[in-house]
Amino acid sequence: MHTISQVNDTSFRTRVLSQNGRPVVVLFTKPGCTACVSARSAVSKFAAAYAGKADVYTADIAMNPQLRATYPRDGVPLVVVFHEGQEVWRRVGGSVKADMISMWVDDLL
């Protein structure tokens, strides 16, 4: 499994919103979320396949109140694809698959 770096309230703007060029995928999770386990597996698989093509992060909304207030309006797990600082795709729930993320990111490469 591929290791995914974390973003927080402080680093989110620099690593995600200010990123130009490569797409950025963020998995929003929280402790105790059982569906987050399968989403993390899919995002990890995607991250391994797209190393150097897309940046991939995870964010724990329990530890980051600013991110919690802004992004997971419909719950977690939440996978969001950003490009040029803008949200371009989102999927809520544990049913997200690596090939699903690939399909949206491929359109941005």
Rank of each mutant, 00 (worst) to 15 (best):
T58W: 00
P77L: 06
V43L: 09
A35V: 07
G85H: 03
V24D: 04
V80Q: 08
S102G: 15
K97L: 13
D60N: 14
P65W: 01
H83D: 14
L27V: 00
S5A: 15
Q6Y: 08
E87Y: 08
R40T: 12
I61W: 01
D60M: 04
T29R: 10
Y71I: 05
Q86P: 03
T34E: 10
P77Y: 00
V80M: 12
R68Q: 13
W89T: 04
C36N: 00
A47S: 13
P77D: 00
N8I: 06
G21A: 01
A39N: 01
P23Y: 12
V43A: 09
G21Y: 05
L67P: 10
G75Q: 03
G93E: 01
L78K: 09
P31F: 09
M63P: 03
V24L: 06
D55C: 04
A39S: 04
V16K: 12
P77W: 02
M103A: 13
A35T: 04
A39F: 00
A47R: 00
T3K: 08
L78P: 01
V79M: 05
T34N: 15
A48R: 11
Y50Q: 11
C36T: 02
A42G: 01
A42Y: 11
P77C: 07
T34V: 13
S11E: 00
A48K: 12
K30Q: 15
R68H: 06
A59P: 01
D99P: 09
V96M: 11
S95I: 08
G93I: 03
A62M: 14
P23I: 03
I61A: 01
G32P: 05
A54P: 08
L27H: 11
P23Q: 11
Y57W: 04
G32A: 07
R22N: 14
R13Y: 05
A42W: 03
A59R: 00
W89E: 14
W104L: 07
A69S: 15
S18P: 02
N64R: 12
I61E: 01
V88L: 00
S18G: 11
Q6P: 03
I101S: 08
V96G: 10
E84G: 00
A62E: 14
G75Y: 09
V25H: 04
S102I: 05
D60R: 01
V92E: 01
T58A: 11
A48N: 14
V96E: 02
V25Y: 02
L109A: 09
L78F: 00
A39P: 02
A39V: 09
V79S: 05
V7Y: 07
